[in-house]
Nucleic acid binder design. Structure first.
Length: 324
RNA sequence: GGCGUCGUGGCCGAGUGGCUAGGCAGGGGCCUGCAAAGCCCCCUACUCCGGUUCGAAUCCGGACGACGCCU
């Protein structure tokens, strides 16, 4: 309807302070927070994924946090669909949707939507997946060539995961991935917004990660892992494939020391953070405001809030909007 | 002081006359619904000095260093 941004994005790699910042901005703008994070979505992983705490969630409404059973499938598509719903609900309440998270790919699904994937039979899908995982890579390459020649040319190397997607779609829908990409319309309109990306100098970032890992271990991560394991979550569940969980479990079983666990977790987290740093460096097409994350959170929040178009509107108008 | 063993890239670690092992860490990058995932690229080293050889990280001698044992 208007050209003002509809949502506020607060993005950036892990441990740059998105959660705290989003919370603060939400307070200032009377907003609600949507988490664009593939792991904070799971119930029972709150400590190890540094999800907003219950008291933070009580202070400001949050969406997309701790609402999935560990074991459920969560992907960019599902996130995007849910997220659009949350956004329109929040707007209907006259409040500001603040999307905060580090899963860049999820955010892209919002900003550059893709064709709507047809419903694929879950059983067939998983049997196809296990079948593919046994195939030699050369064989996989040959299948890709045959079922989606155009893609075969586009992909410099065939990796199992992407090839799997290609073959899955081709075999189950009768159309190649390339066909879907070229001919099927995007499933939704692109979500526009003001984009803020938090950045941190590498050394500072690393130190922050290390500190946070220790804090998480002191704040109940061990209990969290124990209860996940005791409720039957194996090493393959999304719960246990999240960064750090396996190391914490090894620490619990006294296979490694606490220091070794910290070291391993910090290492894994850093690997992840590096990929995110690269992603946010190049993959965001919209013009994004890049800010140093080591500034004071309140100040930063004020700056972000002040930039929000709505906040420049006279007070009585925004109040009126809220009432109607 | 004597004898022995050993000295390989930031770390670990194979090689034993010609053919850039590999792993980890580090860095750069890719990304069209598995993304805390998956994948690609870079980092071309042999303690030093002589010698043998067409050619030495690899063989010989010496120096230095480390470790071990002996005195």
């Amino acid at each position: 309807m208007s050209c003002r941004p509809t949502v506020l994005f607060i993005l950036g790699p892990t441990a740059t302070g998105k959660t705290a910042l989003a919370l603060e901005v939400a307070r200032l703008l009377d907003g609600e927070v949507i988490s664009a994070d593939s792991r904070q979505a799971y119930r029972g992983l709150e400590v190890g994924t540094a999800a907003p705490t219950p008291s933070e969630r009580a202070a400001v409404p949050h969406h997309g946090v701790a609402f999935l059973q560990p074991g459920e499938r969560y992907g960019a598509g599902r996130f995007a669909r849910l997220c659009r719903g949350w956004v329109s609900d929040i707007e209907a309440r006259g409040r500001v949707p603040i999307i905060a998270g580090g899963t860049g790919f999820f955010v892209r699904a919002l900003m550059q939507p893709v064709f709507r994937e047809p419903d694929l039979d879950v059983e067939r899908r998983s049997s196809l997946e296990s079948c593919l995982s046994e195939l030699p890579l050369e064989e996989v390459r040959r299948w890709v060539q045959r079922l989606d020649p155009a893609l075969g040319v586009r992909l410099p190397v065939v990796d199992r995961q992407r090839a799997g997607r290609t073959l899955e779609l081709a075999l189950m829908t009768g159309r190649s991935l390339t066909w879907w990409q070229r001919h099927a319309p995007p499933e939704a309109e692109a979500l526009r917004g003001r984009v803020w990306v938090l950045q941190l100098e590498a050394q500072v970032h690393r130190a922050r990660i290390e500190k946070r890992v220790r804090v998480m271990l002191d704040s109940g991560w061990v209990d969290e892992v124990e209860s996940l394991v005791s409720s039957g979550h194996g090493p393959d569940s999304p719960a246990m494939t999240s960064i750090g969980y396996v190391h914490v479990w090894r620490f619990v079983r006294r296979e490694i020391s606490r220091d070794e666990a910290v070291k391993a977790i910090v290492g894994d987290t850093w690997q992840y953070a590096r990929r995110q740093r690269t992603w946010f460096r190049h993959q965001l097409e919209d013009e994004a405001f890049r800010v140093q994350a080591n500034a004071d959170t309140k100040e930063l929040a004020q700056r972000i809030a002040a930039d929000w178009p709505q906040s420049t509107a006279p007070d009585d108008i925004s109040k009126e909007q809220r009432r109607s």
